[in-house]
Design a protein around this nucleic acid. Structure first.
Length: 559
RNA sequence: UGGGGUAUUGUGUAAUGGUAGCACACCGGACUUUGAAUCCGUCUGUCGUGGUUCGAAUCCAUGUACCCCAGCCA
């Protein structure tokens, strides 16, 4: 840490600073990242990741990876592996501290026994329906279960038999004996264990009782010596319970701190809703480039550094927030602008014939990858010939005012090549432009003319006979509305899915792009950033994904 | 109508009794062999009402709005 890069400061670090002043944890900062392996990580998790790992690092502390795998019916190893890959990709390292709540099942069981013996937990025989009825409502207290005051010995025996598999799912539960009249519903004798005859991804069939989140999370933190347990706002109501178990068990007490989760405009973030998009077939799985998952962003070419930067910029507080997706895109473009080599590609080609350019001639131009700094930039060779492609957008027969590109009577610059002058167009019977005829000025080689005359428009091009063909996929937001969840009662967010959010085009690329590798992101000049799709692309049939378009102020002017 | 939280510009986030700052977005302009980038500039804010104070986003009172909680999910 240096003076130029002050470490982050927010309400969480204030709490930690206070702990350090009072010596509560002896100056130690040890956090954990606790995903449930029941889905893919999304950009919201990146916030938790940056906080958990980043704050610990700022204080010279460490972070554990711990899977919150207490519900076997929802969880799967598939997600365990995907989650690890995402965390590594973002650049975080948990060392050898890869843990699972399920590692602690035996200890948790012993803790439960301890609470039963203390008279602080009991086996309940209420059905799920009865449990709900007895719980009361937000405004009315609950009432005690008839089994609440059964003898300790009886609860002990029953709980042991629950573990032994003598009962069916849902028949019995172990509950904490707290206060059925508490205004905090989480304190109304919360269920600690439920019976689930289900196969667990790690413990297999060893257990048929599983601890609830509330009985597992805090103690797992305690066992690992976690000092600061960061979680999202909805767990605020659970903190009294978190503390209660710790206190009754007389074990090391971590501090739970809640922060507001990240939300983004034009998308949904809950795993449930993301799953619905996948299952409805509206997107191509969890890693569809339109999804807000980290795996999707990786596929799409978002640099992990940009995502971390985005989280830092966004900050952290306790108020509900919705970040405009434009900020994320800005940070991604900012990074890519510095790192993505420039290439020429024509997404919607129209053929241009340079009448006065010799038929059999070709030239190879040396063009810098980073024209902002040509002195230090690597270069690549780009062929030029008599027939080229330009973007259909770059020609207009009847241009509006301030249109600087090619049109009748106009001269424009082919980037890094020559000036060309419009001569004529050829149309088919339907009136579509088939080819544009132009002449070029041999004196303007490289894109400058000796007479110093100015051309306002510069367009890019690809030599027709050298072009390589590729499919390009252009993505837009999944939802046109800023908040797709803010809908009238009778409407479903799935019905608002942006059907035009994927556009597939067949592009012509400059030949150097044949050497592109998966993982590289290029700027296709004047259009956007692109990367080879590591999922669908093959050497025989390259498929490019547009990471993001460039900012297009011309399009904005047209609105 | 119980309990727990939160309110600073369009969106986020600073300011910890002393000039309301920064970023994105927006809108102008300069520059340009990317209508990108870069540069410059403008605009918009302390939830309301009282109070304390020389001075309040900050302290006090009161009101309002929004979020979370009634899974044997996490």
């Amino acid at each position: 840490m240096t003076d130029e890069t002050p470490r982050r400061s927010n309400f969480i670090t204030e709490i930690i600073d206070e702990h350090n002043r009072t010596g509560r944890f002896g100056g130690r900062v040890h956090t954990r990242f606790p995903p449930e392996p029941n889905g893919y990580l999304h950009i919201g998790h990146a916030k938790a990741l940056v906080l958990d790992f980043g704050i610990a690092e700022d204080y010279g502390g460490i972070t554990n990876l711990r899977y919150d795998d207490t519900n076997p019916v929802k969880e799967d190893v598939e997600y365990v592996d995907a989650i690890k890959e995402d965390i590594r990709w973002l650049g975080f390292d948990w060392g050898d501290r890869e843990y699972y709540a399920s590692d602690y099942f035996e200890q948790l069981y012993e803790m439960a026994i301890k609470l039963i013996k203390k008279g602080k937990a009991y086996v309940d025989e209420l059905t799920p329906e009865e449990t709900r009825e007895y719980r009361g409502t937000l405004t009315e207290p609950g009432k005690n279960s008839p089994w609440r005051d059964r003898p300790i010995e009886e609860s002990l025996d029953l709980f042991q038999r629950m573990r032994a598999g003598e009962f069916k799912d849902g028949e019995l539960t172990l509950r904490a004996k707290i206060d059925m009249a508490s205004p905090n519903i989480n304190m109304r004798d919360p269920v600690m264990y439920r019976i689930l005859h289900a196969h667990h991804h790690r413990t297999g069939d060893e257990w048929c009782i599983y601890p609830m989140y509330d009985f597992a999370h805090g103690q797992s933190d305690s066992i690992e010596g976690i000092t600061h347990s960061l979680c999202s706002l909805e767990y605020e109501n659970h903190r009294p319970l978190y503390d209660w178990f710790i206190q009754e068990l007389e074990i090391f007490a971590p501090q739970q701190i809640e922060f507001a989760r990240l939300n983004l405009t034009h998308t949904v973030m809950s795993k449930r809703k993301l799953r619905r998009l996948v299952e409805a077939g509206l997107v191509d799985g969890w890693i569809d480039p339109r999804m807000p998952t980290l795996a999707a962003m990786r596929r799409r070419g978002y640099p992990p550094k940009a995502i971390r930067e985005f989280i830092e910029i966004v900050g952290v507080a306790k108020s509900e927030n919705v970040i405009e997706v434009e900020l994320l895109e800005h940070v991604v473009r900012d990074e890519l602008n510095l790192t993505a080599p420039r290439r020429m590609a024509i997404l919607e080609p129209v053929k241009v014939i340079i009448d006065n350019y010799p038929e059999d001639q070709e030239e190879w131009f040396n063009i810098p990858d980073f024209p902002q700094d040509p002195e230090n930039s690597p270069t690549r060779k780009v062929p030029f010939s008599r027939e080229i492609y330009i973007e259909a957008d770059d020609f207009m027969e009847e241009p509006p005012k301030k249109y600087f590109r090619l049109s009748p009577g106009r001269e424009v610059r082919l980037m890094n090549a020559y000036y060309i002058q419009y001569k004529d167009i050829v149309k088919d019977e339907a009136g579509n432009i088939v080819e544009i005829h132009v002449s070029y000025d041999p004196e303007s080689r490289g894109g400058q003319s000796p007479d110093g005359r100015k051309v306002r428009g510069t367009i890019h091009w690809v030599s027709a006979k050298h072009a390589i063909e590729a499919e390009t996929r252009l993505y837009e937001q999944m939802f046109l509305e800023k908040d797709p969840e803010d809908l009238p009662e009778d409407q479903d967010f799935l019905d608002h899915f942006n059907k035009g959010s994927l556009k597939v085009l067949h592009a012509k690329l400059e030949p150097s792009l044949a050497d592109a590798k998966v993982g590289e992101v290029y700027q296709f000049v004047r259009d956007g950033y692109f990367t080879l799709d590591h999922v669908t692309s093959t050497p025989e049939k390259p498929i490019w994904i547009r990471t993001l378009s460039l900012v297009d102020s011309w399009a904005k002017m047209q609105k």
